[in-house]
Design a binder for these strands. Structure first.
Lengths: 203, 203
DNA sequence: AATCGTGGTGGAACGTGTTCCAAATTATGC
DNA sequence: GCATAATTTGGAACACGTTCCACCACGATT
């Protein structure tokens, strides 16, 4: 997995630069995983990645860019893992819920990491559009893949499919924020998602 | 220590205290309206409200509490205004869209204010649960009221109604965040909401 | 009226994101 | 191999949210 940023997918720069970029994203990941959003401090990232603060800012113009880039890497990996297997379930709703629950389990296993990345996503402004778009596409891809039961043929997506996937993604995001910020429990979130998916996908 | 606590615009405290609280919220509103999230600086709010910084923090323990309280006031006013009139439209979807578009128009007229309040809402953690709840209830109330065409009888809400209202609120929130952060235009947002509502309310 | 206690004031100080800069190091073209 | 350009470094400095503190003001109690 050539780290860097497959999102905006720059395989650009010298080997040393790609190496620095990887170290920075790795450090971000580790700090987020162990301490959440607040623990990802720019000075700490720089130190752990063994670069100067100015260099960190040269690679990622803000803490938000940094975290959203890390989130993009995560989502692309998750999307790739999920899309290479068939999704169990007899209805669209079942399959979508299967996938969402799987993701939810993964996130609950790393709550600090999830908190850091979600917060960054929510706080991102238009300067982060590219990185955000990567995340949105991965989410849509995951849901539509589940709706279609794992067929690798992605060409057969109707507008309706994409609209549905976006709505589900929206609900998922709201639920995620509520969970991350401690305003709802994991169980509440699961229940809410279940209701929402059945409401939207009545097959 | 009975003051501070906002959430549901309490009538607690002396007249002087209520007056201070009002001045603070007004100052917050003005600053947010003219300069957005970044312009709501605690020192600036304190100065404009003519209170000391320490006093500001005594009334609102953080910038987020302050902004979410202001958002709550806004939403309660909007909810009250909308709930006293009948909603036009022949179907649930039409009526809900009418209300959402009305709110959207109001928000687009004050983009900075909307940005400030939305950002705060997204960033709020569990210490802001009470204030957040006020906003969520107002949103749910607005949507269910629209669904039922303006009947004042709120007792007839089914679980399903509330679930639907919550899902619509979620989509609305995600769309709002995308718009506020400059990742989608007002027109995109309107289109997306329309699709979503018709998807959820197929009457 | 004197006292007491709650809350308000003014301002210093700290933490962290961000910016800036001069010096050192590395990469590139000739 | 050298001159020049580009990048990295180390660290100072700044902005703003937040905390803290010593002192002041005013209303209630005696």
């Amino acid at each position: 997995m050539s780290i860097a940023n497959s999102a905006t997918s720059e395989d650009v720069g010298s080997a040393a630069q790609r190496e620095r970029r990887k170290r920075i994203l790795d450090a971000t990941y580790e700090l987020a995983k162990s301490g959440g959003f607040d623990a990802v401090q720019m000075r700490a990232v720089a130190e752990q990645a063994d670069v100067a603060l100015g260099t960190l800012y040269r690679y990622f113009p803000s803490k938000i860019h940094l975290l959203v880039s890390a989130l993009g890497r995560q989502f692309e990996e998750a999307s790739a893992r999920l899309n290479e297997r068939d999704i169990p379930g007899d209805t669209q709703a079942e399959r979508v819920l299967y996938v969402l629950k799987r993701m939810a389990r993964g996130m609950q296993g790393d709550p600090k990491l999830t908190e850091a990345l979600t917060r960054a996503f929510m706080f991102a402004d238009s300067s982060v559009t590219n990185e955000i778009h990567v995340v949105g596409m991965a989410m849509t891809s995951i849901v539509t893949h589940a709706m279609h039961g794992g067929v690798p043929d992605e060409g057969a997506l109707t507008e309706e499919d994409v609209a549905i996937a976006r709505v589900i993604g929206d609900v998922w995001l709201s639920a995620l924020v509520a969970w991350v910020t401690g305003r709802s429990t994991a169980a509440d979130t699961a229940t809410h998602m279940e209701k929402a998916v059945h409401l939207i996908l009545r097959d």
